[in-house]
Simulated scan of single mutants.
Amino acid sequence: MSEAVDVVVIGAGPAGLSAALNLVRARREVVLIDGGRPRNAATLASHGFLSRDGISPLELRKLGREEVAGYPGATVVDRVNVTSVVRSGDGLLVRAQARGAAEPLEWRAAAVVVATGLTEVMPALPSLRAFYGTALHSCMACDGYEKADRPIALIGETDDLAEQALLLSAWSRDLVVFTNAIGEVGGADEARLGELGIRVERRAIADIEGDRAGMTGVRLADGEVVAREGGFLRPRYATALEFLDGLAPAADDDGLLVVDPEGRTAVPGLYATGDVTPPGPQQLIVAAGAGARTASAVHRDLLRVALGG
């Protein structure tokens, strides 16, 4: 039997937690579904979150979950994967499966908020994960300060590496941009970077060098090692939204859900917030703010329906 609730929030990152918290405070019955696999799990510290600068992202999630769960209108379910969201009468039916459980879960909701975030697709380097979250990061705004004036790398296979390198130069100009023989940096952009003392390395990468003390360099396919103490990755991003196939919400060219400024999709009752919406990856505090804004829209829309408006 499916349980009837006001809202199901799918995803327990900053955007989903913020949406759920504001909705339960609006006296809504809310189910918060946490898949238990956050994108930033490898990161030791989160930065730029007011009053929580330097906190572990896992601790931030833990605190947020506890705050949501402390309200009587909230139900938090952990290690659960949503399998489908489909139309059911005037609302939506959410089907899910808890890992290790035989029986599926179902909720009938007046509204569903998708806050599932993104998956990072990294360059295929054997030792990359060993240094990710400590020496290597993907968010300059989050971790650039800690790399200030150090010899660092920017590694990516995208066509915006020059733009990213210019942004990164605010923290350090002792910078080498590695395209791994795939990323694109035009001649004019390379000249502009060169004026700042930033080198572009176009050869293929074999691996990341280092030991338990940390990263020491980038080893190229021809054997040369370029000494670097850390740096930033420019991953590609992917969504995992197959559970919405039955509703077919609009998405942009990057697979991000198209929403209005308050998080409404074109599907009645379906909302999205955080990294899964344009422009994509955001600082934690920005995602949390987006979740709060979407929660306000959900509450007002449900109230309008209840009052016959």
Rank of each mutant, 00 (worst) to 15 (best):
M122P: 10
H137M: 05
D78V: 14
E146V: 13
G100E: 00
A98E: 15
I152A: 06
A141P: 11
A110E: 14
V80P: 02
R87E: 01
M122G: 08
M140A: 15
G100T: 02
G89S: 04
Y145N: 10
R95V: 09
A111E: 05
C139I: 08
A130F: 11
S138W: 10
A115S: 05
Y132N: 08
L128F: 11
A130S: 14
Q97Y: 09
L136S: 01
C142M: 09
W107L: 03
T134P: 09
G89D: 00
D149A: 12
E103I: 12
G91I: 03
A109C: 04
Q97W: 10
P126R: 02
V114S: 05
S84C: 03
G91N: 04
F131K: 00
S138G: 12
M122V: 12
D90S: 15
V113I: 05
A148S: 11
F131R: 00
L105I: 13
V85H: 01
R150Y: 08
V121N: 13
F131E: 03
C142G: 01
A135E: 12
V85M: 00
L125D: 03
Y145F: 12
L93Y: 03
A115M: 07
D90A: 14
S84N: 06
L125G: 09
S138T: 15
G144N: 01
L118D: 06
G100N: 00
S138K: 08
Y132F: 15
L128M: 13
G89P: 02
T116H: 07
D149V: 10
L93A: 06
R129I: 10
V82E: 01
D90L: 11
G144R: 06
G100M: 03
P104Y: 06
D143N: 01
D149K: 11
L92A: 08
G117P: 06
W107H: 10
E146I: 11
V112S: 02
V94K: 01
V86S: 15
